[in-house]
């Protein structure tokens, strides 16, 4: 198991390098010169030249790549062009709030979605199933930013429960979580996976065995069926956690909440190359970490993987 985890971590390095290179070239293809964007339309050529030189932008792309790769190898993500502070320090400040959002959001939305999925499977073909199916189809079809805007409209403008802009210091921290979490819940991503896994398992022979033992319907549903359906469900939750790290870009922008996603979007706006590279790299690393974590949890949950051979 430990050697497997190590292998996964080592194999993540080339992936991260690939992401880093892709982002390095992609940002340089965005139209607009960082110096001009930063200094504004009224900057003189002299100012622009000084700015470029101080940030190493006057060097060739090849030289910039070498510097960036050296940074990648040593873990130095460089200095933010727009904030003039080390990128790693900025990310370090923003990261906890993004991870917090992803974890809280994924946990709450998973619990609700699994509950609805089990209910739909138990009431298969009847009105609760049909209703849940319609809701989850709508939730999954609508883009996150669209749901987010509706959540803002209803909960912030109409009801005034949550702030429209979350990164003001006077707002209690928990309130900044409510809007994004509601948005994640309304996505209802897990409902269908849960329902179909449950229905599949309910057809298995061991469910009939449980029934023949005199096990109650409730216990069959939650212990025998959900106990087995949990394996594909956990896999999906892990996938959701990984995509929540990237999804933070949208949620943090819509709800104006500080975090690594907002850092990335702001950096793109001002062409802050090192910051874009750094945040993209960290988001990719988080996704990989979430995937590895999922595989480990699945392996621990499923005795067919965890325990091999006769004891």
């Amino acid at each position: 198991m430990i050697s497997y985890i190590l292998k996964r971590i080592i194999s993540a390095v080339p992936t991260l390098l690939g992401v880093f290179l892709a982002v390095f070239f992609a940002v340089r293809m965005i139209p607009g010169d960082p110096a001009e964007v930063m200094l504004g339309a009224n900057a003189t050529q002299e100012q622009i030249d000084i700015y470029r030189e101080s940030h190493g932008l006057n060097r060739s792309v090849g030289e910039q790549l070498v510097i960036a790769l050296k940074g990648f190898a040593t873990g130095d993500l460089g200095t933010s062009v727009s904030y003039s502070r080390p990128v790693s320090e900025m990310i370090g400040t923003a990261l906890p709030s993004t991870i917090e959002l992803a974890l809280v959001g994924v946990v709450i939305s998973s619990v609700i979605a699994v509950g609805l999925g089990v209910l739909a499977a138990a009431k298969r073909g009847r009105w609760p199933d049909i209703l849940i199916n319609i809701l989850s189809t709508v939730g999954m079809s609508l883009p996150t930013f669209y749901i987010g805007l509706w959540v803002l409209t209803i909960f912030a403008s109409k009801l005034g429960i949550i702030p429209v802009i979350s990164n003001r210091p006077d707002i209690p921290h928990y309130k900044t979580l409510i809007g994004p979490v509601i948005t994640m819940v309304l996505g209802l991503t897990l409902v269908r996976t849960t329902r179909s896994s449950m229905l599949e398992i309910m057809e298995e022979d061991f469910i009939r065995t449980a029934k023949a033992k005199g096990v109650s319907r409730k216990s069959i549903l939650f212990r025998h069926a959900l106990g087995n359906a949990l394996i594909p469900i956990i896999t999906m939750i892990g996938y959701n956690l990984a995509s929540a790290m990237a999804g933070a870009i949208v949620l943090e922008t819509v709800f104006v909440r500080n975090g690594i996603g907002k850092l990335l979007i702001d950096a793109i706006t001002v062409r802050d190359y090192p910051m874009i590279q750094g945040t993209a790299l960290v988001i990719a690393a988080l996704m990989i970490a979430a995937n590895i974590l999922t595989d480990i949890i699945v392996a621990l949950t499923d005795p067919r993987i965890r325990v091999t051979g006769e004891s």
Partner: peptide
């Protein structure tokens, strides 16, 4: 019926491979 199943009348099935819950001891 739940009180009868497994108590008064029990049943065993054809496929022992598939009739036991794979995630329980």
């Amino acid at each position: 019926m739940q009180k009868i199943r497994g108590k008064e009348v029990s049943m065993i099935f054809q496929e022992p491979m598939r009739c036991l819950n794979p995630v329980e001891k």
